[in-house]
Amino acid sequence: MNGVRSKQEKVFAAVAHVVLSILTILAIAPFWLMISGSLTDNETLTKFGYQFWPKVFSLEAYQYIGREWAQIGNAYLITIFVTVVGTVLSLILVSLTGYALSQRDVPGLNAVFVLILITMLFNGGVVSSYIIYTNVVNVKNTIWALIMPNLLLNGFNVVLVRNYMRNSIPKELQEAAEIDGAGPFYIYLKIILPLSKPILATVGLLTAVGYWNDWTNGLYYVTDSKLYTVQLLLNQMNSNVQYMASHSDIQMATQNIPSVSVRMAIAVIGILPILVAYPFFQKYFEKGITMGAVKG
């Protein structure tokens, strides 16, 4: 970038590659094992355990899941919609809140901050949440049931964003804008948001994964199978397989469920889409506008 890289920089880069390669192997090996397991004949799997290469190749696990494909396809649409809408809404909320809380000259913000901290620690339990979300704000069997409860906003994200805005964005920027007569909304939109890309990407990732992997909201608040999410379906299948396989009195009904390989196939199906989507998301992790440039 800026001319010849020093020898020291090269050493650092080399060390970085070595360390990250080790981490890559540690991360990929089990993932590979999972895929291989999902493609192995179930009988072989239970007898010899997981292997890095299928001892006896078989697609029976995917065929088993494939039987439910009509429903899983719909569930993917629902899950994608919920993840996208939920994450966008969440980012709007969290950035607004984080920005407001990052101010140093507005009274009462510390009290609000503590109130938010409390939400991270104390919770009234699922039963009372259920009462609120079915009686007070009735989200049952609507798409909001999958978006609103618990996932939309949490204190942890607010704290992260607020601290980033407070510590990593030079306060002189905001002060200069204020002197020029800019209002808080203008500053938020034009200065703070563009500079907060990295943290918003981080929090967005956290939120998106939260939405993608959640099945409890569906379990509690959705009975209409048109609104089932992928993870809810997969979770149901998983428990079904487990139950059928461990209760001999009913297993005759569904002989030959490839129970162990299905588990792995279910995991693969649950993870793959988000893994494929992730690289597109990554550009937001690149360095935003250079701070110096704005300052000048």
């Binding site: 939400t119 104390f122 919770n123 009234g124 339990g125 039963v127 949440s129 009462i131 609120i132 609103m148």
Partner: peptide
């Protein structure tokens, strides 16, 4: 989401 259920 948090305070009303906290009555629980």
């Amino acid at each position: 989401n948090n305070y009303l259920p906290m009555y629980g």
